[in-house]
Design a protein around this nucleic acid. Structure first.
Lengths: 134, 134
DNA sequence: TATTGTTATACTCTATAACTATA
DNA sequence: TATAGTTATAGAGTATAACAATA
């Protein structure tokens, strides 16, 4: 079948993102975490005391969507009041343990992704992608 | 803020796909078509008489999801029975006209996307992406 | 005035299961 | 048996509007 679409970088981007997201989701199933959960946990781990709003801004997640996400992570995240309206987030011991599991899955998967890219293109992938959204 | 996530190609892929999809959707608003609509119209235009199932297979769209999609494109697509259970799809005159509009938007956008990528990385984007899903 | 956290809501995309009819 | 078209449904991801309380 004639198919001109794969020649469009935007289309290839969508297909690649879709395929890899589905694969990572399947691999994360055992941890009970979603990709967005893991990214939030990673950001909190790297920045203890950060607010939910700041996490959302950094990851491109709307404030409103942080609420159910953090609710799903109950027990893994600790909330400590900063002032009357802000709360600092940090991982609990359980949160660190779960993140440690998830991190193995994610980092293994990311390494595999890079390995799938032919060597001559490999180092160009990340800079090219970053130019499209940063 | 410390943020290790942009160093993950899978994460960058998701962010880039998300950002570009939102932008293209906004640009397509005037045409009344979605990205998936345009990709379906393009595939039918390139392969007159193709079945809905074949289009879905090629584009990674489930058969079941082709039904409301084609219903949305009523008037743009013509269905002719091939045998008792299959229908061949083709564009109507209106379909060709709408696709012509949408094609300008999409091709302009795709060219802009490539232009955003630094020249030394540009030619590597498409091959690298294709390695991730093909 | 701007920001935080929150509630409610809606739209899109995608996936699965199941059914009918035909090849 | 496998495939085409269809219906119904559910899960994610994402977006907006609006509100109260606080900076």
């Amino acid at each position: 079948m004639r198919d001109p679409l794969p020649n469009f970088p935007g289309y290839a981007l969508r297909r690649a993102a879709n395929a890899t997201a589905a694969e990572l989701s399947a691999r994360l199933a055992d941890t009970g975490l979603r990709q967005s959960d893991v990214s939030v946990l990673m950001l909190i781990a790297a920045n203890p005391g950060v607010t939910a709003s700041a996490v959302g801004r950094q990851l491109g997640i709307e404030r409103a969507n942080m609420v159910p996400l953090l609710k799903r992570l109950e027990g893994l995240i600790d909330r400590a009041p900063i002032d009357g309206k802000s709360q600092g987030l940090a991982l609990t011991a359980a949160g660190r343990a779960r993140l440690s599991e998830a991190r193995k899955v994610v980092e293994g998967f990311e390494a595999e992704l890079l390995a799938r890219v032919p060597p001559e293109h490999r180092d160009h992938l990340l800079p090219a992608l970053e130019a499209l959204w940063r």
